[in-house]
Nucleic acid binder design. Structure first.
Length: 499
RNA sequence: GCGACUAUCGUUCAAUGGUAGGACAUCGGUUUGUGGUACCGAGAACGAGGGUUCGAUUCCCUCUAGUCGCCCCA
């Protein structure tokens, strides 16, 4: 029955809509629109090709000039791969994250630092490590017009350490605690929660070697995630020893792996000497078998590192934070020493996804030319945190909404409404309006839809009398008041309504 | 970096080898001084390029982007 009715309605609609004239008109419009579009496209393409061809024949300098005057290529209206816009709809989550991070920074005594997005490439090569995946495959490196080899930062710690050394923070009262937040860049293959540009929040502590700091940082990460509504998290922890023991272990590992060189897949063989740890956690079954018999990292630890780790664990137990000892946890950055940790959240299908991680980097400052000074830090992936917040329907930060709408009618009233708007602003009453519209009905409809409590209406008559109409949107009742008395009356109305 | 899947108005979902329809949203209107509901109307899409075909949004290829798995990590 219903479908019959609907169908009938549809046909009627269609009949009226597609009267012969209209159809013809429409078709004409369409072709008129289409043909020039296509033709234009082709023309652009042709000329672009031409330019490209001639350009190759000319000298480099000429190409540079041509670049300035080149025929415009078709605009690609999308961000670069793996990069995205964060639209107003998502901002309440981001705002919440920023607020929680700022608050945590304050509570734990961190001061904000901002460093450039771009640094000399070798800063990252030297700190993150030349054999790491991040540096080898994922860094946005380029040469500037001035001939400098630079890179977009793939993480935040390197820049912070550079600033620490450069500005002589080694003489600041210890410990020095820095909080940084901003985009980082990795040329990775994008997926959900993995972006080439993503935002990280980073906390670094300099000049403190006590393992209690390590535990406190884990607790801080835990607290941040918890207060953002992300509760189902698990921390993986490990100690990778000092540079010395690590080097010794690396040698031992290399020696062991050399015996199996022929069994190891060709694409992994280079790692045997460069970065043997990577072979240990390769998913390849042959590698797994070889890894099972390999010398263990824990056994290679020096007594000091063992002690440090034991105390770290003790502190965590004291804090009651759930953790998993995970001796395959190495972390992708070479500067780590001793404590490393990574925090995961359980996602759909029991899959875990990393939200952040960090560790100690006691040797980094010295390695980059600074004083010999211990350091500890961790980073959080803010995009992933936002994703997770959405998944668990966590609380976000909604900005206060206007509760008053200002409607105007007629030229004089329109003029007056500007000052009235300013008066309301000054009185701290958030007001929305639709000055571009003249129709009262349309304005009130908008007021209704935006959910305000009070509408202020000013028309020709009111403008002349120096009054405005105040309308209670709930009850529909309205009163006329002098402009002078508008602000207090509106305040009173709002107060009554919120009760 | 490897493998796979996907691509239609702003959003979401249809249909189709003969160029596309709805819902939500947007804008306008229902005698230019009164909102919610209702009604009427408008604008708005086949990711890009090639091929097959008389004709491709539909079939094939390439590219681009997204998603999934691996890798890596945040």
């Amino acid at each position: 029955m219903v479908s019959k009715k609907k169908a009938a309605k549809k046909t009627a609609k269609r009949a009226s809509k597609k009267s012969a004239k209209k159809v013809v008109k429409k078709a004409a419009k369409k072709t008129a629109k289409r043909v020039p579009k296509k033709a234009a496209k082709k023309a652009v393409k042709k000329s672009a090709k031409k330019v490209a061809k001639t350009a190759t024949k000319k000298t480099a300098r000429r190409t540079a000039t041509a670049r300035k005057t080149r025929v415009e290529e078709p605009l690609v209206l999308q961000p670069l791969r793996g990069m995205r816009d964060i639209l107003p709809g998502d901002q309440p989550y981001w705002e919440q994250v920023r607020r929680v991070l700022n608050k945590a920074a304050q509570e734990y005594g961190f001061n904000r630092i901002q460093t450039p997005l771009v640094e000399f490439e070798n800063l990252f090569v030297r700190s993150v490590g030349s054999t790491t995946e991040v540096v080898q495959k994922e860094m946005y490196s380029f040469v500037t017009r001035g001939g400098d080899r630079v890179a977009l930062r793939p993480e935040l710690t390197a820049g912070n350490v550079r600033a620490f050394i450069q500005h002589g923070m080694n003489v600041w009262p210890k410990p020095v605690k820095l909080f940084s937040m901003g985009p980082v860049y990795r040329y990775d293959r994008p997926q959900e929660g993995r972006y080439r540009e993503h935002v990280q929040g980073n906390f670094d502590i300099y000049g403190e070697s006590d393992p209690i700091i390590d535990a406190q940082m884990v607790q801080m990460a835990h607290r941040i995630l918890h207060s953002l509504g992300i509760k189902d998290v698990v921390f993986h922890i490990n100690s990778i020893g000092t540079p010395k023991t690590r080097a010794a272990y690396k040698k031992k590992l290399t020696k062991y792996l050399e015996k199996y060189r022929r069994k190891i897949p060709a694409e992994l063989r280079a790692f045997i000497t460069d970065n043997p740890f990577r072979i240990l956690d390769a998913k390849d079954p042959v590698c797994a078998e070889i890894a099972a018999g390999a010398p263990r990292a824990v056994d290679a630890l020096d007594p000091e590192s063992k002690e440090h780790f034991a105390r770290f664990v003790e502190y965590l137990d004291e804090l009651g934070i759930t953790y998993v000892k995970d001796d395959t946890l190495v972390r992708g950055l070479d500067y780590y020493t001793q404590t490393v940790f990574e925090v995961f959240v359980r996602g759909e299908g029991g899959k875990r996804r990393s939200l952040g991680g960090g560790g100690r980097y006691d040797a980094l400052i010295k390695a980059l030319g600074g004083e010999d000074m211990p350091a500890m830090g961790f980073g959080l992936g803010l995009d992933r945190i936002v994703l997770e917040m959405k998944r668990v329907h966590a609380k976000s930060y909604e900005l206060p909404r206007p509760r008053v709408f200002l409607a105007q009618l007629g030229d004089l009233a329109k003029k007056k409404s500007l000052t009235i708007f300013a008066m309301l602003q000054k009185a701290g009453i958030l007001t929305s309006e639709s000055f571009g519209r003249g129709n009262l009905r349309a304005q009130l409809r908008k007021a209704e839809r935006s959910g305000v409590d009070v509408a202020i209406i000013i028309g020709q008559k009111e403008a002349l009398d120096g009054t405005v109409i105040l309308k209670d949107m709930m009850s529909g009742s309205q009163e006329t008041v002098d402009v002078d008395k508008m602000v207090p009356t509106v305040k009173k109305l709002l107060k009554n309504i919120s009760k």
